[in-house]
Amino acid sequence: MRSENLVTAAAVPIVVDGRPRAVVYLCSTAELSLGDRWFDALDPLRRRLQHEILVEDAVHARLAQMATQVPPQSGPGAAELAAVVRELGDLSEELADPAVAARLELIRQRLGGGPSVRRGAVLPDGTQLTRREMQVLVEAARGHTNRQIAEHLGLLPNTVKSYLQDLMRKLGCANRVQAIAYARDAGWIG
């Protein structure tokens, strides 16, 4: 605190439901006498922050509750559909005929399986994204930099850059943002 010439400091804890959730630190370069009146003046700020934390907690609780609710389905259940998607993926891997395997993979993707990060993706024109290209695309969609992607996948940053350039060319995209948008529109990533 000496390098900033701060001589007075105060901490205002924000307690919600009996638990400390945040602390607001206030500092001054002037020497101030901090009494009850000074802390009382901060009460509206403390109450507003408590309210915002309560609202945020309520939103998170509601989102968690909604995530556990399963919407009614008129067709096969989610578990059955997932089993069919897996079975189609297994069949496409076993086929010797690459054209038939590619068609099965497209059907699997249309059923909501998304591209197999294990295998890659087949584009409508028959072009394929490799498994590594899909892994790099998924990591890029998570907001990771080339360096972070490289560390996560055990690659060099220049290799990641090369994968991104190749997949952008295959997708007809000018940059990674367009490639991520393409993958989201195709339902490959959330």
Rank of each mutant, 00 (worst) to 15 (best):
Pro157Ala: 04
Val122Gln: 07
Arg132Phe: 07
Asp43Val: 14
Gln148Trp: 05
Gln148Gly: 06
Asp90Ser: 02
Arg110Gly: 13
Ser162Lys: 04
Ala101Val: 03
Pro124Asp: 13
Cys27Trp: 08
Ala102Arg: 08
Val24Gly: 05
Arg110Ser: 15
Asp185Met: 02
Gln109Arg: 14
Ala83His: 00
Thr8Pro: 07
Ala101Gln: 05
Asp17Arg: 12
Ala96Arg: 11
Ala150Ile: 09
Arg147Met: 01
Ala61Met: 14
Met66Ile: 10
Ala64Lys: 13
Ser92Glu: 15
Leu164Ala: 06
Ala64Pro: 06
Glu4Met: 07
Ser116Cys: 13
Thr130Tyr: 08
Gly126Asn: 15
Leu45Gln: 11
Val85Arg: 04
Val55Asp: 03
Val85Tyr: 04
Val12Trp: 13
Glu4Asn: 05
Val15Arg: 12
Ser92Tyr: 11
Leu164Gly: 01
Arg147Thr: 07
Val136Pro: 03
Ala140Met: 02
Pro72Lys: 05
Thr127Met: 08
Gln50Lys: 08
Gly120Asp: 14
Ala140Cys: 01
Arg132Met: 09
Ala183Asp: 01
Arg103Ile: 08
Glu52Lys: 13
Val100Met: 09
Leu95Ala: 07
Arg184Trp: 02
Gln135Trp: 00
Val12Cys: 11
Leu171Ala: 03
Ala82Ser: 03
Leu167Thr: 03
Leu156Gln: 06
Met66Tyr: 12
Pro115Gly: 15
Pro157Asp: 02
Glu56Met: 15
Val16Pro: 06
Glu133Ser: 10
Val24Asp: 06
Val16Ala: 04
Asp36Phe: 15
His60Glu: 13
Met1Leu: 03
Arg86Glu: 05
Ala41Val: 12
Pro115Val: 15
Ala141Leu: 00
Asp185Gln: 03
Ile149Ala: 03
Ala183Tyr: 00
Ala101Pro: 00
Asp57Lys: 10
Asp166Gln: 09
Glu139Pro: 00
Asp90Asn: 04
Val7Lys: 06
Ala150His: 05
Gln135His: 05
Arg21Pro: 01
Val117Thr: 15
Leu42Phe: 15
Glu87Gln: 07
Glu105His: 12
Asn158Val: 11
Leu156Pro: 00
Ala121His: 07
Asp43Thr: 15
Ala78Asp: 03
Leu106Tyr: 01
Lys170Trp: 01
Arg110Met: 11
Ala10Phe: 04
Glu139Gly: 05
Glu31Tyr: 11
Asp90Ile: 00
Arg47Val: 15
Ala30Thr: 11
Gln148Thr: 00
Leu26Met: 10
Val138Cys: 00
Ser162Ile: 00
Arg131Thr: 07
Thr68Val: 13
Val55Cys: 02
Gly89His: 11
Pro98Phe: 04
Leu63Gly: 01
Arg119Gln: 10
Arg184Met: 01
Asp166Glu: 06
Arg110Ile: 14
Ala83Thr: 09
Tyr25Cys: 10
Asp125Val: 13
Ala181Ser: 02
Leu91Phe: 04
Glu87Val: 06
Ala179Tyr: 00
Val7Tyr: 06
Gly112Pro: 12
Asn146Ala: 08
Arg37Tyr: 05
Ala9Gln: 03
Arg19Ile: 12
Cys27Pro: 00
Gln73Cys: 03
Thr29Glu: 10
Ala102Leu: 09
His51Trp: 13
Ile180Thr: 01
Leu34Ser: 13
Thr127Arg: 14
Arg46Tyr: 01
